[in-house]
Amino acid sequence: MAAPLAPQPPDPQFVLRGTQSAVNAVHFFGGTQAQGCPLLFSGSQSGLVHIWSLQTRRTVATLDGHGGQSVNWLQTLPQGPQLLSQGRDLQLCLWDLAEGRNTIMDSVHLESVGFCRSSILAEGQLHWMLAVPGKDSDEVQILEMPSKTSVCTLKPEADAKPGMPMCLRLWQANPGPRPLLLVGYEDGSVALWDISERKVCSRIACHGEPVMGFDFDSQKTRGISGSAGKALAVWSLDGQQALQVCHTHELTNPGIADVMIRPDRKILATAGWDHRIRIFHWRTMKPLAVLAFHSASVHCVAFAADGLLAAGSKDQRISIWSLYQRT
């Protein structure tokens, strides 16, 4: 009672409307001088990718490459204005956006029709690695890009039965040369794969429900995952490549569609099925804000390099927030 009254949560800085279907993926691009004016990509249920200018807050272009099937993952490549979009038409398209172009440069045929989002690991300017859900329901396939050669297929041992992979994250420890892959599975476990040895280093059960999204802080080697259940789990990776659960955080309503840590690793945001975006302090996991703006499930959240937060929701709106920013 003695504490001063907490301030009311802020309103979004602005709202982008006009996708005309649920927003499944958002991704920031640019913002630095070299890359021109900051953009936001959004992928919608109707298969369109909208490119928004954050200056004019209007769509700059619309990419239609997935034949009306929902787009559920967007990622830009570090080497310039190239966008990867994954759709449920079993295509992963690489778009060339340089100099106002918007053409499909390349596409990868996927063999899994699930909702699993892919992941990339850029090794150099030209070579990068791509992890996509594989042909069998519990497989993950690693591709060498841009040559599209299959490096390997990661299949769990026969008796593990973790179910489908739900989310993927390729990363490489700073001193170590070997690429690693984190996979969140349908049975609520998170596994760490060593790609070169094609074996699971460690696997922990974090949730009772399928893991819907996670994010990993490679500096602190700590990650956080959200599931269809009522809790967030924070886990860490020790020097022996073993995962362990640090603690879980109980939520008011079940269902987390996406989790994202801000690039400065101060705060994280979750996209809730309960229409709310939740903000936590990353180190302490102290709840900081509950943003109730959307009127339907929030499907995705993303942070820009400068800290701006975007959230796409089933209510066809994208809300842009500016929270706990250094001024």
Binding site: A6, P9, P10, C246, H247, R276, T284, L288
Partner: peptide, 26 residues
């Protein structure tokens, strides 16, 4: 693990002392 010391930890945390917003609507 930070969960047990939320209280004191946030107090030590001088450089990113984020004030939580009202969460009564949750």
């Amino acid at each position: 693990p930070p969960a047990q010391l939320q209280g004191s930890d946030s107090e030590l945390d001088s450089d990113d002392d984020f004030i939580p917003y009202d969460m009564s609507g949750d």
